[in-house]
């Protein structure tokens, strides 16, 4: 486990980081918590010439309630989210998902921004980000732009964050009734199927984000449509959950076949919706 040679830079400001990225282009990689990049480098599956450590940048490490919204800096660790009183009160889904990630060591170092940009199709965050319909703020050489969660995940390990850009912040609206139900891949602890559900009983609307099942995490649109305007009774939730894998080509690997993943999507969606509705 010895990485290929690389240079290391630790910018102090976001602008400095952005200019390093624009100068070095594809040869540079951002280092956040290091729990995806460092293993890839040690296996030499990633061989960046320059590692830009954004661990000391100001302004990416706070959790704030702002204008009825919550803003989470990209460098906030999973453990910080899991322990956040603000989030526990206003957006417990983030707390629940953070607690389901990896183990304590991973949670202590890994960051929400790093995890989102790495975009492992079996990561936990995508489910929550989709179910919360989050906004993601990205800084680039031309300034800042905002992408919705639905447009963020573009492929396996690929996102809307382009080369030269830095994910800065994740913004969500407070949501009380929510749940995350995850079936772990036994070896890695990644999600074979993770379903995040947010239920708005007054507006009679649900949002369901599913990770681990498809090559790209997705919103279970058919489930959401089926429940639009419906009273959220147990029977209707379970029936709607039957659509959780509709239109999806599930992943298949040695840990789970495609049809088992689709089945888990349905079961975990029903469980997540029921749990969320009961909160």
């Amino acid at each position: 486990m010895f990485a290929a040679p690389f240079d290391y830079a630790r910018p102090k400001t976001l602008d400095e980081a952005l200019s390093l990225l624009s100068k070095h282009g594809d040869e540079a990689r951002l280092l956040a918590g290091g729990h995806s990049l460092i293993p890839a480098m040690k296996l030499r599956l990633a061989q960046p010439r320059l590692v830009v450590d954004i661990g000391r940048l100001d302004g990416l490490r706070q959790i704030e309630a702002r204008d009825g919204r919550l803003a989470i800096g990209a460098m906030v660790t999973h453990a910080e989210i899991a322990a956040s009183r603000t989030l526990a009160d206003l957006c417990p889904l983030l707390v629940e998902v953070a607690s389901a990630i990896g183990d304590l060591q991973v949670r202590n170092k890994g960051t929400i921004g790093g995890s989102l940009v790495h975009a492992d199709p079996a990561g936990d965050w995508p489910a929550a980000i989709l179910a919360l319909d989050a906004e993601i703020e990205i800084a680039g050489p031309q300034g800042r732009r905002t992408v919705t969660a639905g447009a963020f995940f573009t492929g396996i390990l690929e996102t809307a964050v382009k080369p030269g850009e830095i994910l800065c912040e994740i913004r969500v609206t407070a949501a009380a009734a929510s749940a995350y139900v995850k079936t772990e891949q036994k070896a890695s602890g990644f999600a074979l199927c993770g379903v995040a559900a947010v239920v708005d009983a007054t507006a009679r609307r649900v949002r369901v984000g599913i990770t681990g099942v498809a090559p790209v995490p997705y919103r279970a649109a058919a489930v959401e449509r089926a429940l639009e305007g419906q009273a959220l009774a147990e029977g209707s939730l379970a029936a709607a959950a039957g659509q959780a894998a509709a239109g999806v080509t599930p992943l298949a690997d040695i840990h789970a076949s495609a049809d088992y993943r689709a089945h888990l999507a349905r079961v975990n969606t029903a469980r997540a919706l029921q749990r969320a509705a009961s909160r």
Partner: peptide
């Protein structure tokens, strides 16, 4: 180390 993503990546 990457077998879980190989098929899906090849498809992509």
């Amino acid at each position: 180390v990457g077998s879980r993503l190989l098929d899906a990546t090849a498809r992509m």
